[in-house]
Amino acid sequence: MKIISVFLSLIIFLSFCKCQPTKKEKQDVLEAEHIYPYNEVNASIKFYDDSTYTFNIFQKSSYYKKNEKYSGKYLLEKDTIKFIDRGFQFLTCRIAVINNGFVEFIGGSAPLKLKITETSIKDEYAINSLDSSYALFSYHPNYYDFFSEKVKPYSLKKNDVLAINNLLELCISENNNRITHNVNSYTKQCVAVTNANNEIEVIIYCNCKDESKGFHYQITAVKDGCDCHFSVKLNLTKGKYSLLYINGSA
């Protein structure tokens, strides 16, 4: 009888285990990272299908090593990631946007972009044919104060980038005594807005190409270097350029 009792107990136990639903492991829906080549800082973020995320940042110098980890919850609305509860604590901001292969954090204590390495999210606003020499940055008054009037952020479209390239070629052609390189010699960092008249304006920072891909992550500020570095303001609606500034020599 003991053998039968043990056997029945085993059958009941196995049946109970079989009926219990297995816990579903959460899956990644987006991964992005930023490896800073100059000051040994690595940052990465993972968004999961249960509306949670984890963010890791590792900083190293000759004086210290620092590894920070953050986690929280988010909501995805089209191209916008909204950080709920406490927000994105590392930068004290509330939103990020998916913008041409990058996650860009908006309105925090400092600008930050992470390059998307894996994702199941369709970037509906990506410019698929965007030239790799272009880097797009979202306008926010915390970071960029070079627009004198009240403006709104604007997401550049494919035709806008073509118009930018044409205006840059015109600008270089009309100032060829001061700018000796052609448009393809430069990386182009763009911040686009619409002004009070609903005209599309873009500030462009042009810098001679090198092997670094760092220009995709943050606006390059160079004080000299002559015509290897210049900035200009474009009005795409009017097809005009202004505020051309070409760096001087060291």
Rank of each mutant, 00 (worst) to 15 (best):
L91F: 13
K78A: 15
K26D: 00
L167K: 07
V151N: 02
Y186D: 07
L75P: 01
N175D: 05
V103Q: 01
S155D: 08
S212N: 14
D227V: 08
A192F: 00
S173N: 15
E68W: 14
F105K: 01
T194M: 06
I11T: 01
F88H: 01
N67C: 00
E211Q: 08
L156E: 00
L136P: 00
G107E: 04
V222C: 02
K18L: 13
N56V: 10
Q189Y: 07
A192G: 01
V232W: 01
Y38D: 15
Q27M: 15
L234H: 00
N42D: 15
D50I: 14
I4V: 13
E31C: 05
S51C: 15
V202I: 15
L243P: 01
G225Q: 04
C93H: 02
E169I: 12
K82I: 13
K23W: 03
N56A: 06
K26F: 06
R86T: 09
L236M: 11
V151M: 07
V161P: 05
E211N: 09
N100Q: 08
R94L: 12
K188W: 02
E199K: 09
E25A: 12
K66P: 01
I164E: 04
K65Y: 06
F90D: 03
I164A: 00
F7R: 09
N198E: 14
C226I: 10
L76D: 04
T237M: 11
I116L: 13
G239F: 12
V103G: 01
A192H: 01
I81K: 03
Q189C: 08
R178G: 00
Q89N: 14
G87H: 07
F16W: 14
L156T: 02
N67Q: 09
S185L: 05
S71T: 14
S61T: 15
A196R: 08
E169T: 13
A221M: 11
Y134I: 00
G72H: 05
Y53E: 05
L234Q: 03
F215P: 08
L136C: 00
T119Q: 03
E40P: 02
V193A: 04
C17N: 13
N67M: 06
F105S: 01
S120T: 15
N177W: 07
T52D: 12
A221S: 11
V29N: 04
Y74C: 04
F16E: 10
I179H: 03
K152Y: 12
